[in-house]
Design a protein around this nucleic acid. Structure first.
Lengths: 146, 146
DNA sequence: TTGCTTGCAAAGGATTTGCAACATG
DNA sequence: CATGTTGCAAATCCTTTGCAAGCAA
C-alpha cells in the first residue's frame, strides 16, 4: 500500500497532476477493499470517513487509477463498471455464478495463447480481451437439486 | 425469413402473446439487416416504413426476439447493446478492431472446450460465456505504420 | 501565481416503465 | 371482452460535464 501510494505520486508528478487528500483517501479505501468495487460502492465507503467528498471525484479518480496502472476496469455485463486491483495482481479472467453472483478469478495460458492465434489468423494484432465465463457455482447447483 | 416468422408465431402462441403488425414489421427489418444492430439503429430503419412506431416497442421486441431464440445480444463494451441474428447462426465470438470498429466472427473449438474445463475445475457448470478479442485489423495496422 | 481539482448540480445517453387507448385471440 | 400491446412521455440508472471556488506546486 505504501508502494501503491508511491506509484500514484510518481504518476501524478510525471503528468503534472496534483497530489490531493481526496486522491489519497480514495486510493486508500480502494486498496482496502477486495474484489470488484463499483464507483458507487466505493463512494459510500469513502464518504463515511470523508463526508464532504463528491461522487464525481470518486468516478474521476478511479479512471485515473486505471491510467496509472493501479486499477483495472471489470465489466460483468450488468450495466455497472467495477474496478479491481491491478498492481501486483496480474491479468486473469472471471468465472461468474448466474445464481448468486459469486466470482472466481481464473487464468488459462493455453486459452490465452489460442486467443492470440485466432486473432493472427485474421491478420489482427491482439491488444486485449474480455472473457467472462458464466455458470452455476457448486452451492447454487446443490440448491437447485432440491 | 418465412421460417423465422413461423418461429415467432409459435413462440407467441405458446406464451399467450399476440401477433401484431409492429412485431412482424420489426422482425422483418431486423432480419434484413446484417451484423450487429442496436435498438436505436433498428428503430431508425423501422420508422422509415412505419413512422408511427414507438422506440420502446423496438426495445421491447428485440428482447422478445432474444427470448424466442431469433436474436442474440452482443455487448462490445461501448455502452450500447447490439443484436445479431441467432436463428441458423450458431454460436461464435467476436474479434473487434480498436481502430475502426470492424468485427469478425470467430470460433475455436479448443477454446470452447477449455472454457468448460476451467469452469469445471472450480465446480461450476458453465452455462454461457462472453469472449471479445480486441486488436488492430490489417488495415489499421498498415495505416499506423506510416 | 498558474492551472489542476473539487463539489455541486445539471446534463447525458441508453434503456425501462407507467399509463391510457387500442387491438388481438 | 379479457388481457396483451402500443405510443408517448417521464423516469431510471450509471456516468460525465460545466462551472465557480479552492488548493497544490
Amino acid at each position: 500500500m505504501l508502494e501503491e501510494r508511491e506509484i500514484l505520486r510518481k504518476y501524478l508528478s510525471r503528468h503534472n497532476l496534483r497530489v490531493t487528500p481526496q486522491r489519497e483517501m480514495i486510493l486508500n479505501v480502494f486498496l482496502k477493499r477486495e474484489g470488484h468495487v463499483s464507483a458507487e460502492e466505493l463512494y459510500d465507503h469513502v464518504r463515511k470517513r470523508y463526508p464532504s467528498i463528491g461522487q464525481a471525484t470518486v468516478y474521476r479518480n478511479l479512471k485515473l487509477f486505471s491510467d496509472a496502472g493501479l486499477a483495472r476496469e471489470v465489466d460483468f455485463g450488468d450495466g455497472v463498471l467495477r474496478y479491481e486491483h491491478s498492481y501486483n495482481h496480474p491479468h486473469h479472467d472471471h468465472l461468474i455464478c448466474r445464481g448468486c453472483g459469486k466470482t472466481v478469478e481464473v487464468v488459462d495460458d493455453v486459452i490465452e495463447e489460442l486467443q492470440k492465434r485466432v486473432a493472427e489468423k485474421f491478420g489482427f494484432e491482439l491488444t486485449d480481451h474480455a472473457m467472462y465465463l458464466y455458470g452455476k457455482c457448486p452451492d447454487c447447483r446443490r440448491k437447485n437439486k432440491n
